[in-house]
Design a protein around this nucleic acid. Structure first.
Lengths: 204, 204
DNA sequence: GTGTGTGAAACTGTTCACAGCT
DNA sequence: AGCTGTGAACAGTTTCACACAC
């Protein structure tokens, strides 16, 4: 049953979940691996195999119950609990992220935003007051922060990383175009549109 | 030599390039696969193998010439030419993208921004006037557009995709949290921070 | 009939280890 | 000595194909 799930499988589960939520909105209550795969551009076998790492959730002859599979995926991914998130960097990207309703809709709560620009410190984004990065250690260490989102320039990213790790943050979503050095046990995910475009140009 | 390069190798090349540009700034003129790998958290063998798909660029006993490798990677990825990019969706994310200097710094030129909100149409972002999506077909089909960046809500993403594909756009960077259906030959890359966070929570 | 779950097979990607070059 | 380039070995991932369940 559950034994060393490949990371690539875990990365696909949120995509399955997203599609299932759309399907649930249409009122469809059951879906086969073939139908879900067609929608996602994946093979039916891959979907069945991926899910089989976690248990048996389907009904032969019928497929998967959409609602049950949604709840199951949410439980597997630990999305049935709240997560505390901070954003470091309140430029255009930091603002867009802080205003993005998708986080709150998925139980990711932005609890603080930091910047080092005196002109921005003290201003607000919605309910949030932008704080000085000098306060990062105090604020973040005192409350349990699960995830840090880095929306700072590349030159500042490693220093911020070291600070949030010192505050026991073990997951970082990094928008700065630089590879971070982190100790084992810290999960870093990179989002870099330039790198993505540079991959696509290879094929054009 | 060059024969069916794995996609995953192509995805790593921009990361190598990014690191090499930082290294070049420090004045270092030569780097070994071991040193580059350490910086990126990759094995030396992987870097040598990846590069070997495209030719022989290193000097045994010395390593790689930083400047030469930069120019080589830029040529491989076709980054030695300009690319025309449009942004569809001028909300907070669309604004942040349109203002991001990283595109222009890498020869990706934002040539038009579209939205369907009358309150936004006609307003400007820097030099760019936000146009109606109704004009997308005219504007985009008349000039050669290489890449479309989608910063629209999920419910609008497929319709926009169909439109830009009709205008011969063959590369799409999609920020909407939905899997797009596209004909063969169209390259779609997804950026979805929620999906990334949902993967990290699995491990926390 | 349809459709899941899964071992086996096929395929893809990574690491090893060493010949050969500087 | 140090380091690349690469076939071979190894590890990981996907697909196949079929027993079994509805």
């Amino acid at each position: 049953m559950t034994q060393s799930v490949p990371d690539i499988v875990v990365r696909r589960l949120p995509v399955y979940l997203q599609a299932l939520l759309h399907i649930a909105e249409t009122g469809q209550s059951t879906i086969s691996s073939r139908e879900l795969g067609k929608r996602l551009g994946a093979s039916p076998a891959q979907i069945r195999k991926d899910l089989s790492y976690f248990g048996e959730f389907g009904r032969p002859g019928l497929g998967y119950d959409v609602g049950y599979l949604i709840r199951t995926l949410e439980r597997i991914l630990q999305l049935d609990q709240d997560w505390q998130v901070i954003i470091v960097g309140a430029g255009a990207l930091g603002h867009a992220l802080a205003n993005y309703p998708g986080f709150g809709a998925n139980r990711f709560h932005i609890v603080a935003v930091f910047d080092n620009d005196p002109a921005r410190i003290g201003t607000t984004i919605g309910d949030l007051v932008i704080r000085s990065v000098d306060q990062l250690a105090q604020v973040a260490c005192e409350s349990r922060i699960d995830i840090a989102i880095l929306a700072v320039p590349a030159r500042a990213a490693q220093a911020v990383t070291d600070q949030v790790i010192a505050c026991n943050v073990r997951a970082i979503l990094n928008y700065a175009p630089i590879t971070l050095t982190t100790p084992p046990g810290v999960h870093v995910t990179y989002i870099d549109p330039i790198a993505r475009l540079q991959t696509m140009t290879y094929y054009l």
